[in-house]
Amino acid sequence: MDERTVGRAMWRFWSLGGEVRALAGATAVRNAAAPDHPLGTFLCELRTEEIAPLLAGPFRRVLVDPDTPPAAEAQLALHDWKLDVQLHLALPADAAVDPPASAARPVVDDAGWAEVRRLFRIDHLEEDARRGRSARSEAATTAAVAVRRGLGPGVTYLLAERSGEVAGCVATWPGEDGVGLVEDVFVHPGHRHRGVASELLRHAVTHARRRGAPCVAIGAEVGDTPKHLYNRFGFRPVAVARSYELTTGRGTA
């Protein structure tokens, strides 16, 4: 699986449930459920150096791929768009995965999404502390969950339970063109180092493969430890992907 294939699977996942429009030199995605969230309104497939007209729009994030003109990326950096780097990994079709040993229930109602939000809030606070930045607002967590809920029925969120409480969550998508995706793997701090994350991965990969995705991709922060878990599980590094987020005033590139 090559860099372009995995990158496309990533942005297609985040476009689900949203409006996808072809612009002059880029593709725009807008999710009405949370348009102000960086994953709710973004640009991808950037193919022009003349990016000032594009950045005059409402976009909060720009994804960079191997076909993005270097000068376009340079303009984002010049005008203080913040670089975010993610490791993309892929599980080959011939990689064997043990069947899950326990049950996981799909998120199908408000109560299930409330559990997802509870886990996301913990994740957000941990991430902000790890990066040495101020804790994001409750509204930001709500918007992040709204983006996920707006992805539609093609994406399944699963909850793992241990000792009568929700221990973790994961998202799984059978994808397109034979490439599925696993996203949002998170385990509650009280249930870590007990195999919950590996079990969630088994559920997510099995779910995607049963729905037609022989290959499965996943993303990981380059500076965080889950990348090692994914690699031990069988995911192989494909590429380091870059994106730029608008965190200050409107860019003027």
Rank of each mutant, 00 (worst) to 15 (best):
A33M: 09
L55K: 02
P69I: 07
L87S: 08
V85T: 14
L55F: 10
E45K: 08
T68V: 03
A71P: 01
V85Q: 15
D36M: 04
D36E: 13
A56V: 08
P53Q: 07
P69S: 05
V64G: 04
G57I: 04
L76D: 13
A33S: 13
A33Q: 02
L89G: 07
T48S: 11
V85M: 13
L78H: 15
R60L: 06
L55S: 12
Q86T: 09
E50V: 12
T68R: 00
D80G: 04
A72T: 00
N31I: 10
L39R: 07
T41Q: 13
T68G: 02
P53A: 00
T48I: 02
A56F: 00
Q75S: 09
A72L: 01
T68C: 04
A77C: 05
K82I: 15
T48P: 02
T41R: 08
R60M: 08
L78V: 14
I51G: 01
T27V: 15
H37R: 08
A33P: 03
P53I: 06
H37G: 15
T48M: 03
W81C: 14
A26N: 01
F59V: 11
L89Y: 05
P35N: 06
L43Y: 05
L63K: 03
P66M: 07
A56R: 15
H88G: 09
A34L: 08
E45G: 13
L78D: 14
A74N: 10
H88P: 03
P53M: 03
C44M: 10
L83A: 12
P38F: 09
P70S: 01
L39F: 11
L39Y: 10
A74M: 09
L39H: 11
L78Q: 13
A71W: 00
V64D: 09
R47V: 00
R61S: 03
A34T: 09
D65V: 02
P66Q: 05
L89T: 08
G25Y: 01
R30V: 13
D84N: 11
V62N: 12
L46T: 11
V29H: 11
A71G: 03
L83Y: 05
L83V: 10
V85R: 14
A74L: 12
R61F: 06
L89Q: 14
P66S: 07
C44K: 10
A32Y: 10
P35E: 06
Q75F: 00
A77D: 06
I51W: 01
L83C: 08
R30A: 12
D36G: 10
E73A: 12
V62Y: 10
D80C: 11
L43I: 01
L76C: 09
T68A: 02
H79M: 04
E73K: 04
A56P: 07
R61L: 15
G57N: 07
G57S: 09
A74P: 01
F42L: 14
L46P: 02
D84W: 05
L76T: 14
A52I: 02
D80L: 13
